[in-house]
């Protein structure tokens, strides 16, 4: 029995005016998979996530989510269907408490009639005990690592089927990066599919099942992540000496 992939992108093109940022990109995320997109700055990684989420319009291509082709992609509609994006900027509500930030993560679920935000919050606190300690604190006063935890925790409040993560390691100390990645790897066990965009290729490939290398708006290489970790071109450009360790 085969089930439809959580996300299937075919021939996606996105342009900013005349400049084409994504050129016929295709990728697939299967149920319970972590898929990573690595590549240099400006390769179009963030654009890819924005187009999937509906923040940016696509100029061409098909996006199927949970087996359904999406005719018109609107952010609110994607959120309602269980897709959540954690943007690179984290986009927290700085002058609100950690708890309120989390509650708002469940806004759409609440609107759709689910009343389980307290139970979900308890689960998020299990994953990020630090957030429980800080629950009355303003989000703007958190440290960088805590902010990222809050951004991911807030996204989990929506009980997503697919989590889009944009550079979760950006600006964080190595120890905290390791913790965040461990948590992302754990999410897989709860059945959440993850599409992870990263510059930290080594860390991303270690937890991912499948990887795509995006260069100047096109998929240059793709394959299972242990294969990519051994690929000479990937090692040379993104992993540096030593490769997999």
């Amino acid at each position: 029995m085969s089930t439809a992939p959580v996300l299937e992108v075919r021939d996606l093109c996105v342009s900013y005016g005349k400049v084409e940022a994504l050129h016929h990109v295709s990728l697939k995320v299967e149920t319970g998979q972590i898929v990573t997109v690595i590549g240099p700055n400006g390769a179009g990684k963030t654009t890819l996530l924005s187009a999937i989420m509906g923040v940016l319009p696509r100029s061409q291509g098909e996006i199927a989510y949970l087996g359904h082709a999406q005719r018109e992609i609107e952010v609110e509609r994607m959120v309602a269907q269980g897709m959540t994006l954690v943007p690179e900027s984290r986009a927290l509500f700085g002058e609100m408490t950690v708890e309120d930030n989390l509650l708002l993560g469940a806004f759409m679920r609440h609107r759709l009639g689910h009343r389980d935000e307290r139970a979900t919050m308890a689960q998020v606190f299990e994953i990020f005990p630090r957030l429980r300690e800080r629950h009355t604190q303003m989000a703007g006063t958190l440290s960088g690592g805590e902010r990222q935890m809050l951004a991911v925790g807030r996204a989990l409040m929506a009980r997503p089927r697919l989590l889009l993560l944009d550079e979760p390691s950006l600006g964080l100390a190595p120890l905290i990066v390791r913790e965040i990645f461990r948590i992302v790897a754990d999410l897989k066990k709860s059945g959440v599919a993850v599409l992870l965009v990263e510059q930290n290729a080594r860390a991303a490939l270690q937890i991912a099942d499948y990887g795509y290398v995006l260069e100047t708006g096109e998929v240059a290489i793709s394959g299972p992540s242990d294969q990519l970790q051994d690929d000479p071109k990937v090692i040379e450009s993104y992993l540096g000496l030593g490769g997999k360790h």
Partner: peptide, 23 residues
């Protein structure tokens, strides 16, 4: 109220609010 908080959230960070499904 959640809707009141949603309004404050939109005022603080419009992008973040949209990503929560607050149109």
């Amino acid at each position: 109220t959640l809707y009141g908080k949603a309004l404050r959230a939109t005022a603080i960070n419009r992008v973040g609010a949209r990503l929560m499904g607050i149109s």
